[in-house]
Design a protein around this nucleic acid. Structure first.
Lengths: 339, 339
DNA sequence: TTGTAAGCGTTATCAC
DNA sequence: GTGATAACGCTTACAA
């Protein structure tokens, strides 16, 4: 286990010297390119082994202009949702020999753009991003610096990027509303998210469509919230005081449902007897709330895996079609809906 | 906004050419090193501006042997705890001009070692790691490849690394036990974590110490769990069936508490009337469970910030002292303890 | 089949 | 003050 000649780690030149060949030969032998006499090949491999040679990704990247690094941009890594997506993507990417460089936009458009610029400057081979209210134009202008493949997840930007992966929001809301209608509810309220994010928009829109289809009163029962349980709490109060003006509530996220539950408890409104509740998202503690939440479940990590897969395909070949994938959701019936 | 001469982005050479100076002068001017006539300086800056010059981090790193990249290794990014730590560290590092390269060890020692090797190969300037059952020896052998600063968080490896950041586990458990004792409990069970992780070990150990100090029965009421609510559920059953053999339970994590609650509900054991419950960790839904959980709260992001700070100090200067920091915890009293 | 040499885009060490 | 020139560690034409 001799170290390289100098203090630091062994370089290709060291290997070549020890094997008695030129560094180009050493390079090719190690990368399995071209043909060699068995002896040369063996000598190089032995030398590399002996020196514990590890090629420098830095030097290699500088030369090849490929970094095997993917930039990942999210509004908030600490959210369980994004964290899970990240994990899904990271695992797959790592297995394919890619590293992930993470940036948190902290929900601020300028930071998001800065993050993208940094990532592009670092010559990442691809981008996985969940955007947060950045205009398509500024996005386009940053991305156009370099022609780097980019796949969006959870949020879409009209016609931008090489692919989008979204949850099946419409189907989820549809399942929720139809289930409540089956329970006989005709006056259903909705706690919706901020209307500049794809998922929030799609869910509210689906609710309206579905409500119309089921001829259930709706428009005045729509409450817009931020994605926090505090916001869900406040807006629920509006729906419940002084008297409940709905017999059921659809929450567009688990946080909102949790806020709603808190409001009901505080006002002494019985769930599901006086007001039924069901929500999009199925966090692990949903079965343990009182009452257990009827919810739309899905696998967040799947978003990451699919997005990563799409991205790698784009990096591999450059055909042009920009495709959109929906990750399936399913209804998990528990007690909060009245079942 | 003219582009560089060739198709790609402008290089230092392009800037130098346009400014009519050599590239070394351009480099120095842009980095503010050495002295120049005001004209030279202005010309270089103007040229850089004009070409939209961005130095290549790749080339720079190859030359300087510093990457401004920190490797971050965790057992499971999708866990809210690690995700929050990551966010804390990432924000601080980003502000200091560092990038984060993320690896998930998936709780497997070999993967963790592989991750470290990959990161070192990429010449990260420092390492932030929460280890999962890797032997100090193998860790040492990997780290010694290169003398890269390394700070551990949430888990410690005896005498290894340049710093450790841990929660104040003992204080947390102490608060829990003393509070339950104040309620008059003398027979307290504990749901403990796997005994190869620092936090799990310290919490159980603190429980034993505290139990002895308070002369509360303990040893036979210790149940070892994995960190899952399923495991918490199973082990709680052992404590509660056929008859509860404890009047109170301390859960060493929120997940375990959630499992315990499920077990109590299933067996018809009333919390807190028949059995009181309190736990380490204070997830956001703790107030919303039935009953609301009495818990040990702390700021996970703080772990990340402190760890990152320690690491950057190490990177800056190389004094030798390896210091250990404890992140404070506090008791949040709710209803599950009987208050 | 193998070697030579150029080059990726910087920074650092010298001279001038 | 500024400019050659040589690295950093690798890949890849092009020659031999």
């Amino acid at each position: 286990m001799t170290r390289g000649t100098s203090a630091g780690r062994a370089t290709l030149a060291d290997v070549a010297r020890l094997a008695g060949v030129s560094s180009s030969t050493a390079s090719r032998a190690l990368n399995g390119l071209g043909q060699f006499t068995p002896e040369t090949r063996a000598a190089v491999l032995a030398a590399a082994e002996e020196l514990g040679f590890e090629p420098s990704p830095l030097a290699r990247s500088l030369r090849t202009q490929r970094t095997h690094t993917i930039g990942f941009v999210v509004p908030d890594v600490s959210s369980p949702f994004y964290a899970a997506v990240l994990q899904g993507a990271q695992r797959l990417l790592e297995r394919e020999g890619y590293r992930v460089m993470l940036m948190d936009s902290e929900q601020e458009a300028p930071r998001e753009l800065a993050a993208l610029r940094t990532l592009l400057m670092h010559q990442v081979d691809g981008l996985l991003v969940s955007t947060t209210g950045v205009s398509p134009e500024s996005f386009e202008s940053v991305l156009s610096m370099r022609r780097t493949p980019c796949v969006f997840f959870d949020t879409a930007l009209e016609d931008i990027g090489d692919g989008v992966v979204l949850l099946d929001n419409r189907e989820g809301i549809g399942l929720l509303v139809r289930h409540l209608v089956d329970h006989g509810h005709r006056s259903i309220g909705v706690l919706a998210g901020p209307q500049r994010e794809t998922s929030a928009i799609e869910r509210l829109d689906a609710f309206r469509q579905e409500a119309i289809a089921q001829t259930v009163s709706a428009e005045d029962l729509v409450r817009l919230c931020r994605w926090t349980h505090e916001s869900g709490y406040e807006q629920s109060i509006e729906l419940l005081e002084p008297e409940p003006i709905v017999s059921a509530i659809v929450a567009c996220s688990a946080e909102l449902a949790v806020g709603c539950l808190a409001a009901c408890r505080e006002l002494g409104v019985k769930v599901p007897d006086e007001v039924a509740l069901a929500c999009f998202d199925d966090p692990y503690f949903a079965p343990l709330l009182e009452p257990a939440l009827t919810a739309i479940a899905y696998e967040p990590a799947e978003l990451g895996r699919v997005a990563a897969t799409l991205l790698l395909e784009r990096i591999g070949s450059d055909d042009v079609e920009r495709n959109e994938v929906r990750v399936p959701v399913r209804l998990v019936v528990r007690r909060s809906c009245g079942c």
